[in-house]
């Protein structure tokens, strides 16, 4: 099935733009994030810590609704879902 991935700010720069990602039916969000991380070393570093954990401050939205990081292994995606990835900025 196909999942659309939108991204913002530094994560967008690292990934290179919006993506359409193919994952197996019913795949969890964690699986999709792993595929996105494999796009490039920059994408991997933007999303994941060195120990492979998703960076704690990355905000995840599924079809416009917030997903908690603790739910990414349990949340099964559906064909056509849109996932948004957003790193908050902090400067002022």
């Amino acid at each position: 099935m196909q999942i659309q991935v939108r991204s913002f700010a530094r994560i967008r720069e690292a990934i290179g733009g919006d993506l359409i990602v193919e994952v197996p039916d019913g795949a969890p969000l964690a699986r999709l994030l792993a595929v996105v991380g494999d796009v490039s070393e920059e994408a991997q570093n933007a999303l994941f810590e060195e120990n492979g954990e998703l960076k704690g401050y990355v905000i995840l939205m599924r079809n416009g609704k917030r997903v908690r990081q603790g739910d990414i292994d349990a949340l099964a995606l559906a064909d056509g879902d849109e996932i948004a990835l957003f790193p908050p900025v902090a400067g002022g």
């Binding site: 913002f8 700010a9 530094r10 908050p88 900025v89 902090a90 400067g91 002022g92």
Partner: peptide, 9 residues
């Protein structure tokens, strides 16, 4: 409000 580079929120 917050900014970084060309990005803001």
């Amino acid at each position: 409000g917050a900014v970084s580079g060309f990005d803001g929120q």
